[in-house]
Design a protein around this nucleic acid. Structure first.
Lengths: 255, 255
DNA sequence: CGTGCCAGGTGCCTT
DNA sequence: AAGGCACTTGGCACG
């Protein structure tokens, strides 16, 4: 655990190089200018930001607001430091071929430490979870739906849930965990058409299973003769409702 | 600029509340456990991470590696701190209804500062830039292409470049800055069909303009009678090549 | 590797 | 607010 307040460039460079070698996670509060070239080209004029170098050499530049880094370079970059009129950090990666340059005119704070974290996050509520739920509770689609397979691979993509109805007609289901749009319908169509061709059958029933559909998407769905089943993804928004009501009032009164 | 090494929970809570009120950017190196519920449900067991609270109350939890936060809550969350056996941070937001809880068993480092950054990043090489380039250099598509409009809005999406050929037939171009896939072709198809209907014409020429196409996408393109024009997005990979060669060797020798 | 596609996608813009 | 879509998308799984 190292912490340096307003170090000069030479000190900062030494600390940074040491921390990078030791694979420490580095956080840098600084005034900087950033240039990026690679998959695109970008320039960010001087301002105060937080630069992070992670233990896999991921490099992030964060503005004081916003969820996403304003500039970044992915893991495995080659990172170097130079001093002169400024402290300059360069990061370079191949595949994709990219280069980033951070010109730092003032280092306000520099901290670093090695973090140990073996845990992976576990998430419930993905599209796969939704498909599984439908497989287990086929009545969510219709009374006569009999699921047969999950996440079947085809050349045109993979089909979330497949099965048949009472009359032996194939049924294909495309799940979306959020409102389904035009894209979802076209995806469904691709699968239906492909399956028709491959299996040599004339009729295949196609379903969109989602919490909702956009209006245009619904129109397209009808045009092509597919169906919609309203299904909520599992474990969505189980946040306590009364607490949320109180929060709503609170935020309102403070705005 | 405040920096606290291994503060006790009570101190940390006070500092955090003060920093939050002052809208400072907070960085916290700590050992923590994270639970999230809202659009999905997730749990992350105890480990060492960096927690960031940005000046708009964006909350990020970063693992020691990887580009993206492992947990987050977007700007405008209501953030609170509690102490007891642990230091607990809760963040709550409505729309979407979400809740996050960070249970901190050890605070290794706590820093905060108010950052000032008025600059916006400027990016060159987007799809829009590509469309503009084609508009100015129509020969990139074909010798007889005459562009007329850019980013035309339609109900079924917006069309990157539109124009006609020498014979007065409408030409629609869908740009992709990376290899075009099945989705791109279906997008193009949607626009072509829509335009045919709206303008009441039988023939519309459709183009994909991209640096490349996937094999399946190419097949689909041919099936539907559309065309492909190989176009590189502007300013892509202008990184010095000889320097990259050296880097490649360097990384190889160090692996 | 490329190809396809989900993501707690995010962010932007337009109706 | 809803919808459509690009993104230096990122990330994974499968051929």
């Amino acid at each position: 655990m190292r912490s340096h307040v307003e170090p000069d460039f030479e000190t900062a460079k030494n600390v940074l190089e040491h921390a990078l070698r030791r694979r420490e996670l580095i956080t840098l509060y600084c005034e900087c200018m950033v240039k990026y070239e690679g998959r695109a080209y970008s320039k960010l004029e001087r301002g105060e930001r937080v630069v992070t170098i992670k233990q896999d050499n991921t490099l992030l530049v964060h503005k004081p607001t916003g969820r996403n880094p304003i500039n970044w370079i992915k893991e495995g970059a080659s990172i170097k430091f130079k001093t002169g009129d400024a402290l300059v950090i360069t990061a370079e990666s191949i595949n994709p071929r990219e280069h980033m340059m951070i010109n730092i005119s003032k280092v306000n704070l520099l901290v670093s430490a090695e973090l140990s974290d073996a845990e992976e996050v576990s998430i419930v509520g993905s599209e796969a979870d939704m498909a599984r739920m439908i497989y287990e509770k086929p009545y969510l689609i219709s009374d006569d739906f009999k699921p047969v397979s999950l996440e079947e691979q085809t050349k045109y993509g993979f089909i979330d849930v497949m099965g048949h109805n009472g009359k032996g007609t194939l049924v294909i289901i495309e799940c979306k965990r959020v409102t389904a749009g035009l894209n979802a319908v076209q995806q469904l169509r691709r699968y239906v058409e492909k399956i028709k061709k491959v299996k040599g059958v004339k009729k295949v029933v196609g379903y969109i299973a989602a919490p909702g559909m956009s209006k245009n998407a619904e129109g397209m769905l009808k045009d092509w003769g597919y169906k919609f089943a309203r299904v909520e993804p599992p474990n969505r928004n189980i946040v306590d409702k009364s607490r949320q009501q109180k929060l709503k009032k609170y935020l309102k009164s403070n705005s």
